[in-house]
Simulated assay, not measured.
Amino acid sequence: MRTFLMIAVAVATLVAGPVFAKGCIRGAAVGGVAGHFVGKGHAVAGAAVGCVVAHHHYAKQARAQRADAKHAG
C-alpha cells in the first residue's frame, strides 16, 4: 500500500505543471500533518490525498480564470 501511494504521489507530481506544483506541495503538507494526527502510518496517505485535492482545486481555478479571460476578451 505504501509503495502504491508513493508511486501515485510521484506520478501526480510529474503530471502536474509548474503552476499546480505549488498547490500539490501545500496540499501534501497539510494532508501529511492531518494524517499524522489521525494515526500511525497515515501521514503518507494524508500527503497523497492532500496533493491530489489541492491539484484538483488549482486546476479548477485555472480553468475558471481561462474561461473568464475568454469571455472578457
Rank of each mutant, 00 (worst) to 15 (best):
R2L: 08
R2T: 06
M6C: 09
I7Y: 11
I7R: 06
A8S: 06
A8E: 05
A10I: 11
A10L: 11
A10Q: 04
V11S: 11
A12L: 07
A12W: 04
V15T: 08
A16E: 01
G17Y: 03
G17N: 05
P18M: 10
P18T: 04
P18Y: 05
P18L: 07
P18N: 11
V19E: 15
V19H: 15
K22W: 09
K22T: 12
K22G: 13
C24S: 14
C24A: 15
G27N: 06
A28T: 00
A29Q: 01
V30A: 05
V30K: 03
V33Y: 07
V33P: 07
V33I: 12
V33G: 10
A34W: 00
G35E: 00
H36F: 12
F37D: 09
F37V: 11
F37L: 11
V38W: 06
V38L: 02
G39W: 01
G39C: 02
K40T: 02
K40D: 11
G41Q: 05
G41R: 02
H42E: 03
H42P: 01
A43F: 01
A43P: 04
A45V: 02
A45F: 06
G46M: 01
G46R: 00
G46P: 02
A47R: 02
A47D: 04
A48K: 01
A48F: 04
A48Q: 03
A48L: 01
V49P: 05
V49H: 03
V49N: 01
V49Y: 08
G50E: 05
G50K: 02
V52D: 05
V52I: 07
V52H: 01
V52L: 10
V53R: 02
V53K: 03
H56G: 12
H56E: 14
H56R: 10
H56Q: 13
Y58W: 15
Y58D: 15
A59S: 11
A59I: 06
Q61E: 13
Q61N: 06
R63Y: 12
A64K: 08
Q65D: 12
R66K: 14
R66C: 11
A67M: 07
A67R: 04
A69I: 03
A69R: 06
A69K: 04
A69S: 09
K70S: 13
H71C: 13
H71T: 13
